[in-house]
Simulated scan of single mutants.
Amino acid sequence: MKQAILEIESLRKYYGRQENQTKALDGISFTVMPGEYLGIMGASGSGKSTLLNCIATVIRPTAGHILMDGVEVSALKGSKLADYRGKEIGYLFQNFELLDNLTGQENILLPLGIHGVTEKEGNKRLRELAEYLEITGVMNKFPSQMSGGQKQRVAAARALILNPQIILADEPTGALDTKNARVLMEKLAGLNRMQQTTILMVTHDSNAASYCSRILFIQDGVIFHELRRKVPNETREQFYERILAVMAQLGGGSANVL
């Protein structure tokens, strides 16, 4: 039986004290299995971005445990923490976070130098990713010369270049138009399907969520609903309809799920 790649146990993140206390996360527990494509959805302020930032060690939780391959993330220090942030997880931001003074290729290869991997070692992976993500034509261009879709696919290549254990995607389609959002989601879904890339994605977009194999809905810092795609019989379109049905039951429809 496969061991979970990521285990979240009774995770809590509180802000403030006593009567002014805000419970961003209030005892969330779940696991992510190798090769899973897990979506996180919830209303604005539900705690989903806080959850992602705790896993990425951007935020320190108030209580609970985050285990990556059985190792307690909060116990990591120094070079082990740096390796976790750079090699174990790959982070895909909503607004790309590319460096404007570097070309597409230089942006993608940047993690190699930071983590002591030679450019020669990364070049094969770079070529594969650039071809798959259809960004070979922007390798020598600067971000200002790229479309939003190209920027996000360059950012995806940067997140993938070191073959991380898991990709953390924070609203990856949030800054994209419908066409580029669909292209990005198809590429991520393809990586998940063909290379068993593990993805944990926070999204407000029900269409983007329909590419996932499982979705956790968060409300007031706790998990209140879960959907699993019925593979192989359920189509993505049918899964999308079930996502919309859950949103409607929550009250307020899709506008209430951000």
Score class of each variant (00 low, 15 high):
residue 9 E to M: 13
residue 9 E to I: 15
residue 10 S to N: 11
residue 12 R to K: 14
residue 14 Y to C: 06
residue 15 Y to D: 05
residue 16 G to A: 06
residue 16 G to K: 11
residue 17 R to M: 07
residue 19 E to K: 06
residue 20 N to T: 08
residue 21 Q to H: 04
residue 24 A to I: 06
residue 24 A to Y: 01
residue 25 L to G: 00
residue 28 I to T: 11
residue 30 F to E: 00
residue 30 F to W: 04
residue 34 P to L: 14
residue 34 P to Y: 12
residue 35 G to W: 05
residue 36 E to I: 08
residue 38 L to A: 01
residue 39 G to K: 04
residue 43 A to M: 09
residue 43 A to V: 10
residue 43 A to S: 12
residue 46 S to F: 08
residue 47 G to H: 01
residue 47 G to I: 02
residue 47 G to L: 01
residue 49 S to I: 10
residue 54 C to S: 05
residue 54 C to A: 06
residue 55 I to D: 04
residue 60 R to L: 12
residue 61 P to C: 06
residue 62 T to I: 05
residue 62 T to R: 04
residue 63 A to E: 13
residue 67 L to P: 07
residue 67 L to T: 09
residue 69 D to T: 06
residue 69 D to S: 14
residue 70 G to P: 15
residue 75 A to R: 15
residue 77 K to T: 13
residue 82 A to Q: 14
residue 88 E to W: 07
residue 88 E to Q: 14
residue 89 I to P: 03
residue 94 Q to F: 03
residue 98 L to K: 03
residue 100 D to S: 13
residue 101 N to E: 15
residue 108 I to R: 01
residue 111 P to S: 09
residue 112 L to N: 04
residue 116 G to R: 10
residue 118 T to W: 04
residue 123 N to M: 13
residue 127 R to F: 02
residue 128 E to G: 04
residue 131 E to K: 15
residue 133 L to N: 00
residue 136 T to G: 00
residue 137 G to P: 02
